[in-house]
Design a binder for these strands. Sequence first.
DNA 1: TAGTAATATTGCAATATTACGATATAATGT
DNA 2: ACATTATATCGTAATATTGCAATATTACTA
Lengths: 107, 107
Amino acid sequence: MGASKVEFYSPEIIEIANIAKVFSHPARVAIIKHISDQNTCICNDLVDEIGLAQPTISQHLDVINKAGLLKGDYKGISKCYCINKKGLQNAQALLSQFFQTATSKCC
Amino acid sequence: MGASKVEFYSPEIIEIANIAKVFSHPARVAIIKHISDQNTCICNDLVDEIGLAQPTISQHLDVINKAGLLKGDYKGISKCYCINKKGLQNAQALLSQFFQTATSKCC
DNA sequence: TAGTAATATTGCAATATTACGATATAATGT
DNA sequence: ACATTATATCGTAATATTGCAATATTACTA
């Protein structure tokens, strides 16, 4: 991020930024889109689909997961990732509330 | 961004990521929030409000502006930034459409 | 025209992110 | 137990972002 001064912002603002950061890389948008399209997913699928190496996909999945947007269950060897609907809805609510307020107040 | 492979993604996905990137830093969220709260704004205000140096604020404003989220008019010496309501609504629409599709399809 | 104030640009240092090869871990099948 | 397969972690190189001091630019004013 560069020399960061994140500590000065309100929790609400930091939360918005953190959510947006998840979607700020096309690989993660593509991953979320692909998983939700499939309803369920295996990581190896993603490697073929997205065109990035397996560790890179794993890393992106971790970011998405830490934001609370994934549910992962092991089914045999492969890990089945699903979108955490509640998490995604929560993210949507936070962003749309921010947008709502901003657009209603602006000139 | 690190070694980047942005070229492989669909225009829709890249657009989502680009919009999200604007909101992915708390300073920019705070700037957008402050400007919309005030309806109109002078950059020097932001320096006091956000607690970053003037060049840094100017840089962030440029990012927000290039995403089409600002309207700037010179009124005297100071530049009056307003939120571009259409741009913000467009951003909101794109994101909420993505969320809508994702949540409706996921398990 | 010189001085002042507001904003933009430049250059650079500090930090964060991204990508991937190598390797570790975990579960399954033989 | 050993090989195989799927995923995670580690280490590191390449790149991007952030922040600011110094400086330039622009508009106003005396």
